[in-house]
């Protein structure tokens, strides 16, 4: 019951994000970058549904363009982190021995940088731009994928059906590909889902700090950052982008809960 509600609400929110992002790539009500100084800081009207910003740009158009940027950045980042994490995690869990120890030492060192700190450090080196964010966040989040993948590989390979595969006479590599890896997919999917949420949040936080996608290209984070000085004059500028981030995260969290409940039914309605 609750699983279904979570899946429906979460799916709807994320579906909306995808639809808006897709639309924004070829159509927005106004050009999100066109400056119109005569229409600065207009409150919401039927002409500008969510008003205009300090340069007279239409907020709705910028939110839509921002959705496309955020979704793309998050998708590519998660893909990068998962690919990197799975390759290293499987290698470590499969080969074991000294290679495992070296990989895990490096991995644990990267995990010793909390939250977005590693991404902040990398952005300091790379400099703010879209590809830099993907690289920085991808590198910052792959260690947790490595952890999960390696732990899953190690736990799956202790199951009896893995031993059964050896008794049959299958080689180690075949056993790994046929029996171990397919049984590691579920936890990776769950992790990737929640990671999409973390990345959306981290990207908007970096942009909010001015270390993300640089202006004038709109993202939800840099829109919020630009809105801070106009808090008393134009509060709508601070409300809309944050609401977009929150709804996206809510969608991801609900979807993630639904997925986890499906895979581990004990937590749910039972």
């Amino acid at each position: 019951m609750r699983v279904r509600a979570n899946a429906v609400i979460g799916g709807t929110l994320i579906g909306l994000l995808v639809a808006v992002s897709a639309t924004a790539t070829f159509w927005t009500p106004y050009d999100p970058l066109r400056i119109n100084l005569r229409a600065r800081l207009r409150p919401p009207t039927d002409l500008f549904w969510l008003g205009t910003d300090e340069f007279g740009r239409d907020v709705v158009s910028r939110l839509m363009a921002g959705a496309a940027t955020s979704a793309l950045v998050a998708l590519l980042t998660v893909a990068a982190a998962v690919i990197l994490g799975v390759v290293i995690g499987v290698l470590a869990g499969f080969v074991r021995g000294w290679l495992d120890r070296v990989l895990m030492a490096v991995n644990d060192t990267l995990l010793a940088f909390p939250g977005i700190l590693l991404a902040l450090g990398l952005m300091a080196v790379i400099g703010p731009n879209k590809w830099g964010i993907i690289l920085a966040l991808g590198l910052a989040y792959s260690p947790s994928v490595v952890r999960v993948v390696r732990a899953t590989v190690l736990s799956v390979r202790e199951r009896e059906y893995i031993e059964a595969s050896r008794v049959i006479g299958n080689s180690e590599v075949y056993t790994m590909a046929r029996h171990v890896l397919p049984n590691c997919v579920a936890p990776i999917v769950v992790l990737a889902t929640s990671m999409f949420g973390w990345v959306v949040l981290a990207e908007s936080a970096l942009s909010f700090l001015g270390l993300g996608v640089p202006p004038p290209a709109p993202t939800w984070g840099n829109m919020l950052s630009a809105a801070r000085p106009y808090l008393d004059q134009a509060p709508w500028l601070s409300i809309a982008p944050g609401l977009c981030i929150a709804l996206t995260l809510l969608g991801i969290n609900l979807l993630g809960d639904a997925l986890r409940d499906k895979l581990d039914p004990r937590m749910g309605a039972a």
């Binding site: 949040l201 908007s204 919020l224 808090l231 601070s238 944050g242 981030i245 929150a246």
Partner: peptide, 22 residues
């Protein structure tokens, strides 16, 4: 809890400022 988990801290901060400050 899920609601709170989904709100970005900096946005919640801005809303707080908007309400209690402004």
């Amino acid at each position: 809890a899920t609601m709170l988990l989904s709100i970005p801290s900096f946005w919640l901060g801005l809303l707080m400022l908007l309400f209690f400050g402004v």
